[in-house]
Write a protein that binds this DNA or RNA. Sequence first.
DNA 1: CATTTTGTTGAAAACGTTTCCAAGCTTAAC
DNA 2: GTTAAGCTTGGAAACGTTTTCAACAAAATG
Lengths: 346, 346
Amino acid sequence: MKADTATVKDVARHAQVSLATVSRVINGADNVSPHIRQKVQDSIKALNYFPNNAARALVRRKADSIAILIRNLHSTFFSDLIHGMEDGGRAKNLNVLFCSMGKEQENRDRYIQFLTNGITDGIILYGPLFSDQPIIEHLHGVKFPFLLIENNFQSLPVHQILINNQDGARVAVEHLIELGHTKIVHFMGDPNRKINLDRFNGYLYTMHAHGLNMGEHYVRHIGQDSEAAYSIAREMMRLPSQERPTAIFCSDDKIAAQAIMGIMDAGFSVPENVSVLCFDRLTHYEDQYRGPDFTYVGQPLYEIGRDSIMYLTEILEGNAQEPIMKTYDTTLVLGGTTAPPERSAQ
Amino acid sequence: MKADTATVKDVARHAQVSLATVSRVINGADNVSPHIRQKVQDSIKALNYFPNNAARALVRRKADSIAILIRNLHSTFFSDLIHGMEDGGRAKNLNVLFCSMGKEQENRDRYIQFLTNGITDGIILYGPLFSDQPIIEHLHGVKFPFLLIENNFQSLPVHQILINNQDGARVAVEHLIELGHTKIVHFMGDPNRKINLDRFNGYLYTMHAHGLNMGEHYVRHIGQDSEAAYSIAREMMRLPSQERPTAIFCSDDKIAAQAIMGIMDAGFSVPENVSVLCFDRLTHYEDQYRGPDFTYVGQPLYEIGRDSIMYLTEILEGNAQEPIMKTYDTTLVLGGTTAPPERSAQ
DNA sequence: CATTTTGTTGAAAACGTTTCCAAGCTTAAC
DNA sequence: GTTAAGCTTGGAAACGTTTTCAACAAAATG
């Protein structure tokens, strides 16, 4: 913090008025005579005065800023989200502070305690990092204004933004069906995450709706470690061509990247022999990955980012009596990993 | 900000001690008896008390946080830089606030006035956005701790981190020379930016050092609008093959992308007919660009990010009597836009 | 001209902390 | 057994604002 700065007191003395009057000028109150206002403004300039925002926040009980809490600010996955938030914040002339939580519980708790006690008026929490009950319950308990994105917290009535994972899965699977696929397997990520369950359900529902009968082995559980998808895919390609699936719908891009590499290393190619499709465009293994651009289910991250700021300001202004609950639809983005099945396989 | 929260006063009453004692417990002072300490800690838990950081910052004259000011947080160009800063901040258990300035002067000034008056202890300013004198002079004048990255502010002794642009240009040009090129032109960006001047000087120096005599037209001034490089490159390809350059060294990736597209649209190919080389890997026109991966001069952005946090903490701790002035070397990253010149052109 | 209304101003309290200083108590030293 | 030293504790001031309230002057009303 600054070494030595002018304060209202200094300005008051310099302009020969009271503290109250200086404060009034600073905050643009209308009940101060033009002559005195000018004198105060001159003094402010002369002393190079800026109000101390900590003192101001303390007495006004309002910090004039909000914060965004994300697991990793550097991930290119968040580019569009952040872009939307930047634009949303600028449109409202808000001080938006972006904070990167990391994996450590301790680090995250420190940030939250710092931000929610006098430094910001409200926060936006992105992603499953924050699904653990205690923190959400604490914020809800002390009535600190916050908004969850893509978190799906069920046990309390909190403000949240979600994407329609189940419907996204439907669109993805129907795309494969339209191409002519019938033997479509699902590579499913960590079932403890609600989004993976939703995507799985969307897959299941759509397969049933199209009368596609599947055996047990049509769902492969990848679990938390995406790299498992590599060997599972590779293994799968060993099946006789009658039994072999012609398409894979994956929970996310990490899994898809591993699956595609497994397929390629087994001597097959995508999409000629197998179509692969997933949620989100590839951002994680970009360096290692050498394959065609993904066909994927995209999230409207820019819009979510932009709107989230708007919703938070609504909450701060007290305009959100009912809990906000918005669901955003996904879009299928066509790339080079899906194609009609091979003739011989039909 | 929170609706209603316990304060030290409440804790003091609950534990039947004075404010001073509660404060001592919170701040881990050693001169408080175990029995009382326990009682206070119990009360803190019971009342769910957290200290108000605005009040704390006010009286301690220290905010326990730093901020990073960047033009655009969402640009993938900054991923590595941000990654380094995240790691650097976590290593020091610091509250790091990332702020996105945007283009508007007004917006940026608001952020700076907000952050530098009670909210943070120091800031890091990235890039030429901040080269305008007034802001730097103001911060320097009020002795607010700050560090410039890649800015090159000359008129005052301020702390800064730079990259060795001139040497990067040397390495780039020598790479082309080693491949056998002699007719190497320079596509130069906005000459008002110091980095472009440095890169230009590096080019000039290296060409001279290798006895490569160049006419005036070997330097093409692209200016502020990178898209101009498209038509200039296209035009250039119309020259008879004797006069036509076999390689282009560009100030930055934007210019290179435009140049390559110009060359391709003129019916030539990169690197077969012309080699192209620049500073920074492509991050701006990613969507439109369809060409080979760049050969480029890369900056050690991760290291710069990580170290910048460390340097700022040094400054905050008063360990930087002399102005910090660090220069980082670049690395040539080989890609698919450079190759030996065509036989016929030699 | 007396009285009310309106408009400007300053004194002082408040916001929630930390910290200086003095007071009280205990223990050690002589 | 007196005095000095060392701990622990609380009172009160301070940090830099905003805001309430009352005071006062000037203008408007009758």
